[in-house]
Amino acid sequence: MNNPIIKLSTLLMLSALLAACGDDGDTGPQGPAGPQGEAGTDGQDGTDGQDGSDGQDVINGNSAFYTVKVTNLTYSQPFAPAAVILHESGFDSFNEGEPASMGIEIMSEGGDPSMVITEAMDSTDFLDAQNSGGILGPRSMGAELTLVVPELDADDLRLTVTTMLVNTNDAFTGLNAANVSNMAVGDIKTFMTVTWDAGTEANTETAATMPGPAASAAGGGGEAAGYDVVSDDLADAVRLHQGVVTSANAEDPSREGLSTSVLTEAHRFDFPTSRVVITRTR
């Protein structure tokens, strides 16, 4: 059965021997170089890349979403950018009767709320915060801000809001750790807020000490008229604001007005000063 294969291989061997034996002359000159070969075919596609790593767990079914909306209820007190903070019970940005923190002082005198937020972030009770970032004009509604906290913390949740009344020395309104625990999706809570005096700057109502448009119109205002390291208030303690005196009635028989004030009767405000609406959306 193997015979045919053996015979074939023997024949091949014989022909090779014959070829070798037949060439006894000199080696001929090298032939010309052959033409360039055709381009090779394209290589195969590479293998697929590896799957990406999983996304981080930030927005998932275990988070509770809230929107917060502030309305300015005053006639002519613009609100500086607002700090809006969600946290657990146990933390307070400020306490009535106690000195204001550096963050509250800077916010209430100059309007910048960023240190109020960083102070809150240093607390273990901190959950989330937003800086509204813009001025909220008098008699107007602000944009909705969205805050996200772990669902597990929704049963012990507090809302703090601070925003300066800019035509004042150191007045601010907002909420001090208002209880917003156990809101179901779709629930809405509305708060009408008071205004505090930070207790860090005397209420002189002069152009040199207030940052807002009333002071600007009188040749002052701006950043230099904002935060001042000097604390010269009657008491270094946060308390409810008495309202602005203004220059109104400085000349009538009552002389109740403050003739050195650059504020007018239009800058007066009563409580409530703002409305804060929080809605749980998810």
Binding site: N249, D252, S254, E265, R268, F269, D270, F271
Partner: peptide, 17 residues
């Protein structure tokens, strides 16, 4: 519509604002 800033008034019924 906003929260009223309160009446101002004055103490002179024949003058003032």
């Amino acid at each position: 519509v906003h929260i009223h800033r309160n009446a101002l008034g004055d103490t002179d019924s024949a003058a003032g604002a």
